[in-house]
Amino acid sequence: MNSQSNSNIELIYNEHSKMVYNLCLGYLHSIEDAEEVTQDVFIKVYHSISEFKNKSSLKTWIYRITINKCLDFIKAKKRLKRMSDMISIFNSKNELIHSGKNFEHPGILLENKEKSILLFKAIELLPKYQKTVFILSKIEGLNNKEIAEILEKSISAVENLIHRAKDNLKISLSINFIEYQKKEIK
């Protein structure tokens, strides 16, 4: 590892690490997993920086890598969970792999904690593109044009995805509404 590439990656890390980590956190709902994927993202950036063409901005390129890494991580975790479920049929002493069921995002305001737990649970159930678009729009605060550039889609397609994501979230939240009311009464 030479000092030139070392300082390059340090510059990129200082500029974009917070964005990458927060996006991972929004996707994975676990601090440990977000740290792991953030590391993978910057390793990928280090190895592929020579392949980066100035067709899009560096930020957009890093966003794309982060989204792909998060989706790969979720897929791998689901595969691992399926395998552990298979093993649990034969072995009753199996431990649960997935831990982040009730995820409390560290950046959420205290008065919104309970509500955001429900929201993150509902986000987990969304299809891949709707989930990505909702996280980029509502958690990362990107506008539709920026999202369209990252996902290489039209702005109208992004608007449509946000609309469908909201509809699906409303449906799944209305199912969990009774559970939320019970907690409010307590």
């Binding site: 590892m1 070392n6 990656i9 340090e10 890390y13 690490s17 917070k18 964005m19 980590y21 927060n22 956190l25 740290e35 953030t38 590391q39 910057f42 390793i43 280090y46 995002h105 560290p106 950046g107 959420i108 305001l109 919104n112 509500k115 955001s116 429900l118 929201l119 509502k138 958690i139 909201k166 979230l169 409303k170 939240l173 209305s174 509404f177 939320y180």
Partner: peptide, 26 residues
């Protein structure tokens, strides 16, 4: 209530990273 839940991430703050993460990456 559902609208409030959907808006619960509105004033979300960016979370700081573990300061040793860059060393781990290197």
């Amino acid at each position: 209530t559902i609208e409030e839940i959907l808006e619960s991430t509105k004033d979300i703050k960016k979370v700081d990273l573990n300061p040793y993460l860059f060393n781990k990456i290197l």
